[in-house]
Structure formats: structure tokens, C-alpha cells
Simulated assay, not measured.
Amino acid sequence: MGNESLSKLLDEWEGRARKVNGRKEEQLSIYKSDSIKLAALASMYKLSKDDVVATLIHEALNELEAKMPYIQGSKVIRIEDGEEIYEDAGPMPRYLAEQKKVLQAS
């Protein structure tokens, strides 16, 4: 096993530790058909169902956030390279504000 293999292994362990340590247990209801799909994926990839669910939710939320549209507001918030940058009047600022409220409440 060379240095590169050990580095890869350490990176993998660090990634797993970050995922597990950053997780919070939640209870949720899902459709029976989705439960079957999750169990099949878990079995196929030799993962726990919890790992599959956590990863899917994480990726879905990241994709959802990336798809939130920017809607140009009327207020200029800064100037970059001589160009006016307008506030975002779309859903993202409200979403971030709600996240902040939840974080402060916990």
C-alpha cells in the first residue's frame, strides 16, 4: 500500500466521519413504494437505509437550492466592476432567513 492509497483511505474516513458527525436523527413518513426503493438501494450498495436516505435528501436539497431562481429586485445592493448588482427578490433570501430562524431556535 503506497502513500497515495493511504491518503485516499484517510480522505475517505474523514468524509465518512464528517457525514456521520454532522447528521441528526429525524422521524419522517414516506410512501411504502419509496421505502421499498430505499431498501433495494441500500441492499444493492451495501449501505444502511439511513445512509441512503440522508444522502438522497442532502443531494435533493442542494439541487433544489441551486434551482431557486434569482429575481432581480429594485434595490441596488453593490457595484461590481462598474455594474449595478440588484437584490434578489426571489425565494432564496426568504429561504435563508427561515434557515437562520430555525438555527437560532435550536
Rank of each mutant, 00 (worst) to 15 (best):
A17G: 01
E63C: 01
K32P: 02
S74A: 14
E26Y: 14
L96P: 03
A54V: 01
H58Y: 12
S5Y: 00
M1F: 04
L64S: 10
Q72S: 13
A42P: 12
E98D: 09
V20I: 14
E26K: 11
L28W: 04
E26L: 15
N62S: 13
A105M: 09
E63H: 13
V76R: 08
K49A: 09
S43I: 00
V53P: 07
M1I: 02
L10V: 08
L64G: 06
I30C: 08
L96S: 09
K8T: 04
K19P: 00
S43R: 13
K49C: 01
R16D: 10
Y86K: 11
E12I: 03
I36V: 10
D50F: 08
I71C: 03
L6F: 06
I71M: 09
E63G: 15
E25N: 08
E65Y: 11
R16F: 03
K46W: 06
I30E: 05
K19F: 10
E84N: 12
D51W: 06
A54T: 10
S48C: 04
E26N: 06
E59Y: 09
S33G: 01
I57T: 13
E25Y: 03
K46D: 10
V76D: 02
D50Q: 14
E12D: 13
M1V: 07
W13S: 02
D51S: 13
K67L: 13
K100A: 15
L28R: 06
Y86A: 00
G2R: 11
Y70I: 07
M68L: 15
D50I: 04
R78Y: 02
E25H: 05
V20D: 05
A40W: 09
I30S: 04
S29M: 09
Q104R: 08
I71T: 12
S33V: 09
L6P: 00
